[in-house]
Amino acid sequence: MRKEYDLQTDVLATIVAATSVTKNHSDLLTAFATRTDYRSARYVMARDVYSERPARILDAEDREIAADYHAWIDAQLEAHGGSVRAVWEAYRNAGYRLTEIRPLLHYFVHDRGGEQDNFVQLEVWEEQEFVERELFPRDDSWGLPRIDELRRGATGMAFIERSEPRMLGTPRYRLEGAIDMQQFISLATAMYDRRRRADGDRRLVETNRSTGEQRIVTVRELTPGYDQVRWSGRRFFDDWSASSAGRAGHRACLRWTFNTSDYTDPSGMRELSFVPQWAHTRKIAELKNTGKLDVYSLYGKLTQFDERIGMPFAWYFYGLHGNLIKSGQMERVLEAAEDGLIVLPEHDYQVLRRWSQHPYGF
């Protein structure tokens, strides 16, 4: 079912699929500019962390036996009584080959300007088909896969004799999504607020251990500042706008991409969230072994970090992510600022202070 924030259409998917993969994605950017509403689309980054997946089955002469490996293997298991060994016996000498898809996810952004969340994130797969192994090993000396492994495509890893996988055809684009992030964030915020209000209204029985006296209280009454807590995704963009990063004109959508999630649990409770992914391409080392540094040296390293990233107050947002900058380092900077040992711009100090009062991260 199409989501409220997903702007992808059959026309957009067709345009993306019909565009040739070129260096720097120049043809796709031209297609966006001339054939879609995303005329200002810019390339942001690629994510090369996805596993290869089974695609087709070919014979030894590259004739197609099945266009969909998963449908074929399900049919074979059904025909052979669910027996992995029976399927293997039927095809181990057939010389069939399994093709796979090597996926790479590209992020583009159409920035509509104004508010920091006012952009469309375009997610496009680049997929290359290749073949490097036969469907089944010729013998079972290394054992046979379990049925769940067979369904996933782990059929025994019988590699064809060659130094490199053989590419089939040319890479192709496939549209994954066109997400209106402003709509996504608005919807996610409303869902979070409704859920939090409902949780805050839950009534509990509080018992005085000394007197045994009981009273009915709500979660809200037991939690100082309960109604001040806001959804972390909304806070990310608000913090960006308020900080030196936003004030200097840097756009969050060109510095980060957003791995979105839309999950409904078995009870019907729906939750939208995202994890920000940095878009820098330079190798940036984690800020480690700072525990013994004085706060001046620590802040100096954070300033150097900003210079490498190319924007002010970058360390704060990387601290929210948590891989390169740690929350303990952020807390030390706040303490030093409050003690008058270092000077932060007032707007950055206020962002850091609000984070300390109600910490969040990704």
Rank of each mutant, 00 (worst) to 15 (best):
I15C: 03
F119G: 01
E132F: 11
G361V: 08
T223C: 00
R195F: 08
W231N: 06
Y43F: 15
I101N: 08
V11M: 12
R102P: 10
R92D: 05
L302Y: 00
T170R: 14
H106Q: 09
R195Q: 14
N289F: 07
D199H: 10
I309G: 04
S243T: 05
S356L: 10
P266K: 10
T19Y: 05
V109Q: 02
A337P: 01
F362M: 04
V205Q: 08
I325F: 00
Y360D: 09
A66Q: 05
R215E: 14
A154H: 15
L287A: 02
R196E: 02
Q357H: 11
A71F: 10
T290G: 00
R133F: 09
V84L: 04
H106S: 11
S141M: 13
V205W: 05
R85G: 07
T155L: 01
I342R: 08
A314N: 00
Y91P: 11
S297T: 14
N259V: 10
W240K: 05
I65P: 04
M191P: 06
F159R: 14
R194W: 07
Y349D: 10
R220C: 09
P171A: 04
L77V: 08
F159K: 13
G82K: 01
F32E: 07
Q277Y: 12
H321T: 13
G361D: 01
M269I: 15
D294M: 05
F159A: 10
S186F: 12
V343I: 15
L12T: 01
G310P: 00
A31W: 02
G233A: 10
E307P: 00
L105Y: 09
R230A: 13
R63Y: 14
I325P: 00
Y50N: 12
E132T: 12
R92M: 06
A66E: 04
D294E: 11
S40E: 12
F313Y: 03
Y192P: 04
P103R: 09
A86T: 03
A31T: 02
E127C: 04
N259D: 15
L58I: 09
V21Q: 07
G81T: 02
V275K: 15
E127F: 02
N259P: 02
D74I: 13
Q183R: 15
V229R: 13
F184N: 06
D62L: 12
F317E: 03
D180H: 05
D48R: 11
W278V: 14
M157F: 15
D59T: 03
G322C: 02
R220N: 11
H250K: 05
H106T: 06
V120H: 01
L150V: 03
T303P: 03
D265N: 15
Y107A: 15
Y69L: 03
Y69A: 05
P266C: 01
D193A: 11
T14S: 14
L29P: 02
A158K: 09
T281K: 12
Y318V: 04
I147F: 03
W355V: 08
E61S: 14
A17W: 06
I342H: 10
F317H: 00
I342M: 09
T34H: 07
M181G: 07
E213T: 05
F237C: 06
R166M: 10
S40I: 08
M1V: 12
G319S: 04
A336M: 03
Y173L: 05
W72I: 02
E221N: 07
T30W: 06
R247F: 02
M181C: 11
T14H: 12
R63V: 10
T34F: 05
I160Q: 06
T99P: 06
E221W: 00
S261C: 12
W355P: 00
L324W: 05
L175A: 00
A18T: 12
